[in-house]
Design a protein around this nucleic acid. Sequence first.
DNA 1: TTGTAAGCGTTATCAC
DNA 2: GTGATAACGCTTACAA
Lengths: 332, 332
Amino acid sequence: MKSSQPTMKDVAKEAGVALGTVSKVFNGIAVGESYRVKVEAAAQKLGYQVNQYARGMRASKTYTVALILPGVDHPFFSALAQHICSALLQRDYRMLLYVTASRPDVEQQCIQMVQQNRVDGIIGLTYNALEVDESLPFVSIDRFFSPNVPCVTSDNYGGGRMAAEKLLELGCRHPVFLRTGSANSSETDKRGNGFKALCQSRKIPFDALELDDGQDFGLFREFFLSHRTHDGKLDIDGIFCSTDLLACQILTLLNEMGVRIPEDVQVIGFDGIRHYGTGTPYCSTIIQPVKKIAQTCVDFLLTKDRSNIPALICLPVTYAAGGTTLEPVGGD
Amino acid sequence: MKSSQPTMKDVAKEAGVALGTVSKVFNGIAVGESYRVKVEAAAQKLGYQVNQYARGMRASKTYTVALILPGVDHPFFSALAQHICSALLQRDYRMLLYVTASRPDVEQQCIQMVQQNRVDGIIGLTYNALEVDESLPFVSIDRFFSPNVPCVTSDNYGGGRMAAEKLLELGCRHPVFLRTGSANSSETDKRGNGFKALCQSRKIPFDALELDDGQDFGLFREFFLSHRTHDGKLDIDGIFCSTDLLACQILTLLNEMGVRIPEDVQVIGFDGIRHYGTGTPYCSTIIQPVKKIAQTCVDFLLTKDRSNIPALICLPVTYAAGGTTLEPVGGD
DNA sequence: TTGTAAGCGTTATCAC
DNA sequence: GTGATAACGCTTACAA
């Protein structure tokens, strides 16, 4: 009359063997052939399933990893979540997902819940500093915490350089860098650094307007207005945006202002996200290797030997035309 | 020299009280004030965190819910995941996310993992029948399994009617229903039913082309070609697509064919997804109440009294113009 | 009220 | 190779 799920004890009784034997069978430890068969038959018959909680408690290994993300509605984040989940499932790990809406209090609540659940590790993309037990394997995305915490990110600096180089190559003489985002510094800030560095090395003067999330988006409009020349055109001809999303908003803005893209101004974003459905790129962009990032996070997190993991892993990015630069789409 | 996290035993020793007392404090069971203070101080000092696994094993309550989705890259799914996650977090539940890519084998693997983890319940949107322990609370999205499993979905039938009504109201005389999707039947099939029912009740002849996922998308093109009249125009003037995504693809197709939207043909989709970033709708559409769906799933799943939960819950949908019908966008 | 002790389902250590 | 038995960290009767 047991209403709940069968346990190893039940299996042992059914098979007529000792409890320990059943455990061994399920852990792949050598056991007499005849016993193994009996145990497996009994387990099959009872529909037995290992209880991961009990196992985890004993072995302090839970085969569960926590993924902490600001949200899952951004195409980049959702791709990340999906790939990480698949990579984990392949290795027989489960994934606890926490969405934080970038709120520090929620982020901290998540960390607490994670610790209560004794996960085997955490993969986190958070905008705020986290207080996490040093003993818990932790891999950070896009944000460097400390040398003990490997940070997986794209080659943001290289991507920034690439964008600048591309704009110059396509004839831009007055490039501009635009950004919005968290005020907290992260690896993604290097996108602008790379862009500026290349411009400087080529002795090309550039402009930049870098906003934080709280600031008025209208400042971008003002920026453009202040760059209007007497003939109504803009004196800038190339824009690198820190994200595709920003590029998208800037494109809308320029459109309203009657600026032609890409004839008057060429725009390059960063991320490589695409419209769901049509698969159309949002803009010409530097593509992040999302799947590779996901795979790398999982690999590092589950590596046995955590002694010689690099502190920062920058994965290579690629450029793809997306209609907002003077070149055929998909070209290059 | 304990390297791992502190346990209740440690807290008890530190506070100089019995183990049971510590447990009571953390479970909100009445305990002498002086004891409570001592325990809390000790816990604070040691940085103690309840071990949910141990607790779950004993109480067979894990405060964890599994969400099984085909993927998280579709805007509707990701919104669902996000809202469900938030709703659960608010109630102090964690969420295990499984993505199945709609593959029956992965779906079954997930179910197995879920059972091993003794979750408190499952919310699932799956295309294939699942063998899940009847004793485990289960809420299905968009797919009816059995009267014991509540199914949460939109008012698909009503939405279909609404779409038809709208097209007719906007002057369409030759409406068409188009669908693609899983061959397995689900609640979403009622979208077409509602559409057809309304057309019939109004005595308006309609056409329909209903494909399954495996089938050649080119059939849609052929369908349109066969509906060309001698003057090169189409003899259909209104299309209801089973999803926004399909609508999006159909729009691309019609565009290639030189058909003007919405002048020649008006199109209505179903879902209410929007381009990330601009927030632009994909098309005129029937909007699903995603957040409400998420909340409802969580509510039903965590309801104590599971005896009188309805077997099918259809949440109300709304219509919104999105540029592919003859009316101002955002209007009605 | 507080402390004690028996379990929850596993795994791991031993004698056999 | 097999089978008792003691943990793992916690909850919960029950005894003090």
